[in-house]
C-alpha cells in the first residue's frame, strides 16, 4: 500500500450540489481496485491561471487514499472512462497528512 493524492477537476456537467454523489462514485472506484480513501477535501471553484479547453474556472476536489501500486494502472483506466472528470492528476504522497511516521522505539 502506498499513499497517493488525487486532484480532480469536475466536468462542467456536474453541478456543484451534486458533489457528494460525485465523491461517492469516486470513492467506489477507488474501493473497487482495493484502495481505501483517507480523506476527501473539497477545494471549491477556482479560476484557472490559463484557460483550459476554453473554460475559465473549475471545481476542484482532492482525494487522499492508499492503494497497492500494481492497481494504479487499473484505477487510471477506470477514471478515464468516467465522464464526470474534466482532469485528474494522481501523485505519490510521501508524507500523508494525519499519518505520523512511527516513533523510534526507545
Amino acid at each position: 500500500m502506498k499513499s497517493y493524492e488525487a486532484l480532480f477537476i469536475l466536468a462542467e456537467t456536474v453541478r456543484e450540489d451534486q458533489m457528494d454523489a460525485f465523491n461517492e462514485r469516486i470513492r467506489t472506484e477507488i474501493n473497487k481496485v482495493g484502495g481505501t480513501v483517507r480523506q476527501i477535501v473539497p477545494m471549491g471553484r477556482r479560476p484557472f491561471a490559463i484557460p483550459l479547453k476554453k473554460r475559465e474556472s473549475g471545481v476542484y476536489v482532492r482525494f487522499d487514499f492508499d492503494l497497492d501500486p500494481v492497481q494504479m494502472a487499473a484505477l487510471q483506466e477506470r477514471l478515464k472512462m468516467n465522464e464526470d472528470i474534466f482532469r485528474v492528476q494522481i501523485i505519490r504522497d510521501d508524507q500523508p497528512t494525519g499519518v505520523k511516521s512511527p516513533a523510534p522505539s526507545a
Partner: peptide, 10 residues
Amino acid sequence: KRARVMGLVR
C-alpha cells in the same frame, strides 16, 4: 509543471 496541467499556475 504539475500545477500547470491542473490550471493552478501559468
